[in-house]
Amino acid sequence: MTTPWGERVLARFPEEPRDPLRAWDASDAYLLGHLADEGVALSGTVVVVGDRWGALTTALAEHRPVQITDSCLAQEATRANLRRNGFAGDAARLFTTQDPPPERIDVLLVRVPKSLALLEDQLLRLAPGVHAGTVVVGTGMVKEIHTSTLRLFERIVGPTRTSLAVRKARLVFSTPDPALTRPAAPWPLRYRLPDDVGVLSGRPVVAHAGVFCADRLDIGTRFFLAHLPGTRGGRVVDLGCGNGVVGTAVSLADPAAEVLFTDESFQAAASARDTWEANGAAGRAEFRVGDGLEGVPDGSADLVLNNPPFHSHQATTDATAWRMFAGARRVLRPGGELWVVGNRHLGHHLKLRRLFGNSHLVAGDRKFVVLRAVKR
Rank of each mutant, 00 (worst) to 15 (best):
V289K: 00
L239D: 00
D291V: 02
V236E: 07
A29S: 09
A272K: 00
T162E: 09
G6I: 06
R366L: 11
E62S: 15
L164T: 14
T248K: 10
E62I: 11
N358P: 03
L118F: 01
R288L: 12
I219S: 11
A92Q: 04
R155Q: 13
R93F: 13
G198Q: 12
R216Y: 14
T160R: 05
D121T: 05
V9D: 11
E16L: 15
W24T: 01
R8C: 14
T147R: 15
L31T: 05
R372F: 06
V304R: 01
R22M: 12
R366G: 10
A249C: 15
L352A: 09
A373Q: 01
L361N: 10
R52T: 09
L164Q: 15
A285G: 15
R84N: 08
V107E: 00
L119D: 01
D291F: 02
D28Y: 08
E154N: 11
K375F: 08
Y30T: 06
R155D: 05
T3S: 11
F95T: 10
A209R: 01
A301D: 01
R354Y: 03
L338M: 06
C213R: 08
L108R: 02
V197R: 06
R232I: 09
A301W: 00
A184T: 12
Q314I: 08
N81G: 05
H349F: 12
T317C: 09
F356D: 02
F261T: 00
A61T: 03
N306G: 03
L119M: 11
G220S: 14
D51F: 02
P255T: 08
E144A: 13
C213P: 03
E277T: 15
H131S: 15
R125H: 12
L56R: 03
D263Y: 05
S251W: 02
A23N: 03
A319I: 08
P176T: 08
A209K: 01
H227A: 06
A165Q: 05
D254N: 14
G247L: 02
E337D: 09
R155S: 06
L150S: 04
R192S: 12
Q98K: 13
G133F: 05
S271D: 03
Q67H: 09
T69L: 01
S27V: 04
S163P: 07
A272N: 01
R203W: 05
L94P: 00
N306Y: 07
A207F: 00
V340F: 07
Q122C: 07
V211E: 00
V369N: 12
R18M: 14
C213N: 15
V66I: 14
P176I: 08
